[in-house]
Design a protein around this nucleic acid. Sequence first.
DNA 1: GTACGTTTAAAACAGTTGTTTGAGGCATTG
DNA 2: CAATGCCTCAAACAACTGTTTTAAACGTAC
Lengths: 232, 232
Amino acid sequence: MKSSFLSADAGPAEPKYSETALRILEAAERLFVELGLEATSLRLITQQAGVNLAAVNYHFRSKDALFEAVFARRFEPWARDCLRELDALEARASAGTARFDAEAVVMCYVRPALALSKDPSRGGALFVRLFSRVLVENHRALRETLSREWGHLVSRYTEALGRALPELTAEEVAWRLHLGFSVMFHAFAGNDILKLFGRSAVSARDPDLIVKHVVPFVLAGMAATRGEGPSG
Amino acid sequence: MKSSFLSADAGPAEPKYSETALRILEAAERLFVELGLEATSLRLITQQAGVNLAAVNYHFRSKDALFEAVFARRFEPWARDCLRELDALEARASAGTARFDAEAVVMCYVRPALALSKDPSRGGALFVRLFSRVLVENHRALRETLSREWGHLVSRYTEALGRALPELTAEEVAWRLHLGFSVMFHAFAGNDILKLFGRSAVSARDPDLIVKHVVPFVLAGMAATRGEGPSG
DNA sequence: GTACGTTTAAAACAGTTGTTTGAGGCATTG
DNA sequence: CAATGCCTCAAACAACTGTTTTAAACGTAC
């Protein structure tokens, strides 16, 4: 029933959950993405997971805590990847083997996002969509955990972009980061404004294709000259 | 049941709803934005509106129909504004009094969005946020109405941008529109990725400030030269 | 006055929600 | 053997959901 609890020193400490708990997590993840937190009932989750209803409140404390667990399981490794990328870039820049420009900073976000999107065993595109739901739906269940960890990541990226674009003011750097990450984030999440229940000319589900189009767009936007404002 | 249905030819036919119905609409709009469709109960709506519970099912058919009404009340005038802008641009371009470039097309979206954001009597920033929730939550209640009207708008913008950027392929035009509208849309909606429950360096709630920063960003992105892709 | 359609009021409807309970299974440990 | 943990199960809990029903108030027309 429980099987092997490997706890490799370097590798991720995955086997934190029993098999029942894992099946709940996986069914919940899928349903939360499709239906949202409120619209997903515990009965539907346990039914699709093939486990008993009470197992949810046994393994996780409550529905909110389950949601938090679903999110944290995917978010934390991904956040670590991002931090690793930033550390590596700083190291390479210090060693003189890489330029510390906007493209390098953007790629510190793109590479983990791309890797995540392509790896179903870590949630794949499903988690990215969940993340984007979390963003607009503003769940109480995640406020504390997220604002701490995500806040740290954001300040790292802000610092990095400021260093890459020294001619910009702090306010401008914040805006470029805000806008640039917004495009990339929603592009990876597949939030296709143009589609909106209909068909779109853009087949925005292939991660490599997303990168191909979104990176030039973002880099050009971040490097935009000031005051290219509206004329009328 | 029907009351006075003024159908002025030019002006907006506002007094479509009785006062009770209007108070329901307004309370519902606010709550749907804050809590989402599923998490907002009719009892909470009617309580905040100061009307009886049964009034919802009397004036509107059901909760889903109420949601549709809430959305349509704001969406339709705004969509008409967008179409008017596009028509006006085409007219001015034909007359030789305006250039048909990417900036002109982008402003056909920015001006209505800006006007809407600044006009509380038309939903203001609240509706833009509601719109963005609708986008990710994919409600059945809106599928038909939205996909038709929004689909028409999108094809108009696509056509316009293709005309403004004739050197790009149709696929590239679709991507630029997708990415550009994505940034603008979420910027106006206040979906601040960097914030996410915490504080952000960007005070992204002032519509004029949004325009000031997002327009140069989008224009630069749309005009990006091909193949500015990642290096590694 | 009565009669009418319109709007509101309170109560009840059947169904679903998250959560808890208490009994029991099943392996490991003494 | 009994005892101990961990876990699963079916059933029940109170609270809440959208919706319907029934009665009453309202202004207007006859």
